[in-house]
């Protein structure tokens, strides 16, 4: 384990006990994520990508193997506010303003009032929502709501940002824009990002490391270190390198699927 390792999983497994017998959601997962990485988890439904993210966040408990986050157990890491989590839906409280929603974790964690206001201002600016603090969620578009939920996850200075298909419910044009903004946000804040997605172009465009997963049982089939530069304009997606990586991801997904497509 080098000094830069943020998340390290060794022989990690998670089996859910269901009425139809045990379901192996994750088996033999070995992965190291370094500080500043942008890691995408890609794979079909049931491959365990969301489950793995939830294990990192201590929302699920693994049944075998080891995992450390910032050198601690996931539970301890959560107590130490190691990560912010962004869900599929923005999940903003309709009875709170945007600023009020972003303040939610700060209130729970007991930040001082003045500090809260300052942080809300700062993250609103970070996600390009300055001036929208006093608006209510219903007054914002779906894309803006999801940006607000990212701001909420950034408000308490966690080093790790875990995102579970955050743009899955948005249309492609909005999605492209948010991807571009997410990259610039990542460059400015130097966070470590774990990002679950269904979309090959999204994974290739965003990531420094792409983790290809497959189902039954959920496992990692390929880990691709992206050779793309950190600076990525949208049209990088037409470059030969990009297409080559996308091809490798697709091959990995197909191999993992076996014959049951």
């Amino acid at each position: 384990m080098t000094q830069d390792t943020v998340i390290k999983a060794e022989n990690l497994g998670l089996t859910f006990e269901t009425n139809d017998g045990p379901v192996r959601a994750l088996t033999d997962v070995n992965l190291e994520i370094n500080k500043g990485d942008f890691v995408s988890f890609i794979g079909p439904s049931g491959c365990g990508k969301t489950t793995f993210l939830r294990v990192i966040a201590a929302l699920e408990t693994p049944t075998s193997g080891e995992i450390t986050v910032n050198g601690m157990t996931p539970d301890a890491a959560r107590q130490a506010r190691a990560y912010g989590y962004v869900f599929q839906a923005a999940g903003l409280y309709p009875w709170r303003t945007i600023a009020g929603n972003i303040r939610l974790p700060l209130e729970i964690m007991g930040y001082a009032k003045a500090d809260q206001a300052e942080r809300v201002e700062r993250v609103l600016e970070l996600v390009d929502l300055d001036g929208f603090g006093e608006k209510y969620p219903w007054q914002l578009s779906g894309g803006m709501q999801q940006r607000a939920s990212i701001a909420r996850a950034l408000a308490f200075d966690a080093d790790i940002l875990l995102m579970d298909e955050p743009f899955g419910a948005l249309d492609e044009i909005v999605r492209d824009r948010l991807n571009e903004e997410l990259l610039s946000l990542w460059a400015r804040t130097e966070k470590t990002i774990g990002f679950v997605t269904h979309s090959i172009p999204e994974a290739v465009y965003l990531s420094t490391k792409i983790v290809v997963m497959s189902p039954r049982p959920g496992r990692i089939t390929d880990v691709i270190d992206s050779p793309l530069p950190k600076e990525r304009p949208l049209d990088i997606r037409d470059s030969a390198e990009f297409i080559e990586i996308a091809h490798r991801v697709r091959e990995g997904l197909r191999a993992g699927h076996g014959d049951d497509v």
């Binding site: 929302l59 869900f87 599929q88 729970i108």
Partner: peptide, 27 residues
């Protein structure tokens, strides 16, 4: 589930979950 998970990621106590989420949501 998602809203409760979100508060779990903040390590919110049950009292905080009650005041900040459950009660307003029950109005």
């Amino acid at each position: 589930r998602m809203q409760l998970d979100l508060l779990t990621t903040y390590s919110a106590t049950r009292a905080q979950t009650l005041w900040k989420l459950r009660l307003p949501a029950s109005m």
